[in-house]
């Protein structure tokens, strides 16, 4: 279980996270929704050690992750599909996938995981030798997810995977999130596309300017008037 407690992050004078707390229980899909600039990405970056927390703690299965280096956090099975995908454009699809498995030493299993990624995303197999920079946005997102799966995540965190993608691809990505989760991977999903996220999530949290203002099951939040008016574009 991932447990965030009273987490604060500053960027210079900006207090981006102002003491947030939430939990991601094993085997669940939890989503964090919020407007642009609310602090969603900062939350994920703080969990995985890309930005330093100014106070509070992040613990994973009882172990404190605060202050740990990103590579060590990733080795513990906490994996991030970053905002904007961040595939390596000058490397091939194949090399990008190899990087996902960079720290793994179980070669035969890595090979079978690669096959599995290709069966989830046949498009990636066709484009295996192609530079990632030449892929379409949707293909790059598939690659970003595939690359993360190559790390064998226990907790998969995704930062706005649907951003800028065609509805069909968004649906495909969410279907795969569901499937990954069914196979036992815990998911922490961040979205501005609140409806899609709340529909797959067991639990949701609403983040507003660095604070959590609302929480409930996915269904509860979908039905909540404040959520409906602020994030689902419906009159309250």
């Amino acid at each position: 279980m991932l447990k965030i407690d009273n987490l604060s992050v500053h960027y210079g004078g900006i207090h981006a996270l102002q003491g947030i707390g939430f939990e991601v229980p094993d085997g669940k899909i939890v989503t964090l929704i919020g407007a642009n600039g609310a602090g969603k990405s900062t939350t994920l970056k703080a969990i995985i050690g890309l930005v330093a927390a100014s106070s509070g703690s992040v613990s994973w299965n009882g172990e404190d992750l605060t202050g740990m280096m990103t590579k060590d956090i990733v080795k513990k099975g906490v994996v991030l599909v970053p905002e904007g995908r961040r595939v390596f454009p000058n490397l091939t699809v194949d090399e990008n996938l190899s990087l996902g498995a960079f720290s793994r030493t179980d070669k035969p299993v890595v090979a079978s995981d690669r096959d599995k990624v290709f069966s989830l995303f046949p498009r990636l197999k066709e484009r295996m030798k192609q530079k990632a920079g030449t892929l379409s946005g949707g293909e790059q997102q598939m690659l970003a997810v595939g690359r993360a799966l190559m790390t064998r995540p226990k907790l998969l965190m995704m930062d706005e995977p649907s951003l800028g993608l065609a509805p069909l691809i968004v649906k495909m990505i969410f279907d795969i999130v569901r499937e990954i989760n069914k196979e036992g991977t815990t998911v922490l999903l961040i979205e501005q596309n609140a409806k899609a996220a709340l529909e797959v999530a067991d639990r949701g949290y609403v983040l507003e300017t660095g604070r959590i203002t609302l929480t409930g099951t996915g269904k509860e939040l979908l039905a909540d008037d404040r959520v409906r008016s602020a994030y689902l574009g419906e009159a309250g």
């Binding site: 995985i48 050690g49 890309l50 590579k71 990733v74 970053p82 990087l99 996902g100 790390t151």
Partner: peptide, 8 residues
Amino acid sequence: DAARLMAI
């Protein structure tokens, strides 16, 4: 940062 996320 992306390299860090690959546990490099």
